[in-house]
């Protein structure tokens, strides 16, 4: 991978669970030419919310991206974790060549 030396960060989004939410979130990233390296989405049991995990580059536009995510009507909360967060690390076995 060429992007190995880029700093990464993990975003945890709590969103309303209905069709179209994923489009709103990923559309925001493509619209602002911001790369998403990894994406994971599952409903939160016994609620009407879903959780979206995003693995993104930690560059100088990240703050603007988080503000834009917070503006989406279906996004309830955005939390930023360090790159060390293990949600994507634990999935690596599913993505071996």
């Amino acid at each position: 991978m060429t992007a190995l030396n880029l700093k990464r960060t993990v975003l945890e989004l709590t969103v309303k669970n209905h069709p179209g939410v994923m489009s709103h979130v990923v559309g925001l990233f493509s619209r602002r030419a911001f790369n998403v390296e990894g994406i994971l989405c599952m409903p939160v049991p016994d609620t009407d919310t879903s959780r979206i995990w995003l693995l993104v580059n930690d560059d100088d536009r990240l703050e603007q991206l988080i503000k834009q995510l917070q503006k989406l009507q279906d996004v309830i909360a955005v939390q930023q974790h360090g790159a060390a967060h293990d949600v994507f690390v634990r999935l690596e076995t599913f993505f071996n060549a």
Binding site: G20, S23, H24, G27, L28, R31, L72, Q73
Partner: peptide, 14 residues
């Protein structure tokens, strides 16, 4: 229409 209006509305509904 829903997909096309995501980036040009504040919010949209189907």
């Amino acid at each position: 229409t829903y997909g096309m209006t995501i980036p040009i509305t504040k919010h949209n509904f189907l």
